[in-house]
């Protein structure tokens, strides 16, 4: 498959990158989603700004009360990082279930988030873990909460001139845990999510003090299921409480039918995975 003609820029610094970005440009990180879309000619930007050579973006850092994942950190690195595993295990699990080995070695966590595919895994993890997206451009830095980042199918809150340079994840405190689970398009965990859910819960004195639950695969975008979280808070996290909270999973979600499931089926799956993710998160505390 052959893309239309485009210019290719490989800047050595963020400043050079910002200068190269314009209305008809695209940032390229791992290229795992961008290149196929260009080859199918579904997407034909005039300029590709390859950020792979920019120093300082490929690390996972400890920021005291948070950890940060740089723009060039791959799915594989996110999945196997002790720091991510300890502080955002839902995101680590989502990264480990993204694509295959080759994709995990090239694709980046930030790229998967910026790409904002309706069926991607890591957006759910980022939402549940309370990530903050750090977007930089020539005019400065914006911090965008994950809950405001996923706007629509393949549309994030980033502007055309912005680079998602890192994401920040709050560190896990006592009584907190998170998890991600999905049904993949090839069955089991394989491939994009037909439906997937991530959950973060905080328990103290036997009851749930706070929770965040996120859904992917079923609707027009990865999204927080706030109704579920609200219903969980204050309960003891028993199976009955989880089942009752799960009933709120689809509030505000427009479920879309596709080759992998009818509306009815995907609505059902959303609840199954919300319930599984919550139970796994509780069990991990």
């Amino acid at each position: 498959m052959y893309p239309r003609q485009f210019d290719y820029v490989a800047p050595g610094s963020l400043e050079e990158a910002f200068a190269a970005l314009g209305d008809d440009s695209k940032v390229m990180a791992g290229g795992m989603s961008l290149i196929p879309l260009m080859k199918m000619r579904l997407f034909s930007p005039a300029v590709i700004v390859d950020i792979a050579r920019i120093p300082g973006l490929a690390t996972i850092e400890d920021g005291g009360d948070h950890i940060s994942i740089g723009a060039l950190v791959t799915h594989g690195e996110t999945a196997s990082s002790d720091a991510v595993g300890a502080n955002a295990s839902a995101l680590a699990a989502a990264a480990s279930l993204t694509g295959d080995v080759q994709v995990r070695n090239r694709g980046t966590t930030c790229g998967a988030l910026a790409h904002a595919d309706v069926a991607a895994d890591q957006p759910a993890g980022a939402l549940a873990c309370g990530a903050v997206m750090v977007a930089q451009s020539a005019s400065g830095t914006r911090e965008i909460p994950a809950s405001e980042f996923f706007v629509d199918s393949l549309t994030s809150a980033l502007n055309a001139d912005e680079i998602l340079t890192s994401i920040r994840l709050p560190k896990t405190g006592a009584g907190e845990g998170s998890a991600y689970d999905k049904l993949g398009r090839r069955g089991g965990h394989s491939d994009y999510a037909v439906a997937g859910a991530a959950a973060w819960v905080k328990k103290s004195n036997g009851s749930i003090e706070a929770a965040r639950v996120a859904l992917t695969g079923v609707g027009t975008k990865p999204t927080l299921a706030s109704g579920v979280a609200d219903a969980l808070v204050g309960t003891d996290g028993s199976d009955a409480a989880v089942a009752a909270a799960t009933e709120h999973a689809l509030e505000g979600v427009t479920v879309l039918e596709d080759l992998y499931g009818s509306e009815e089926y995907k609505s059902h799956l959303a609840k199954v995975y919300v319930s599984r993710a919550i139970k796994q998160a509780l069990a991990s505390i």
Binding site: P36, M40, D100, R185, R186, G187, G188, S190, D191, L259
Partner: peptide, 29 residues
């Protein structure tokens, strides 16, 4: 048995026009 199916819609549009929509099993599956 598990994965593959060429799908045309009722107007004859090919809905499985790439391996993204036409999953074939890999060793891991």
């Amino acid at each position: 048995a598990m994965l593959e199916e060429v799908v045309y819609d009722e107007d004859g549009n090919l809905l499985t026009g790439s391996l993204l929509d036409y999953p074939i099993p890999t060793a891991g599956d």
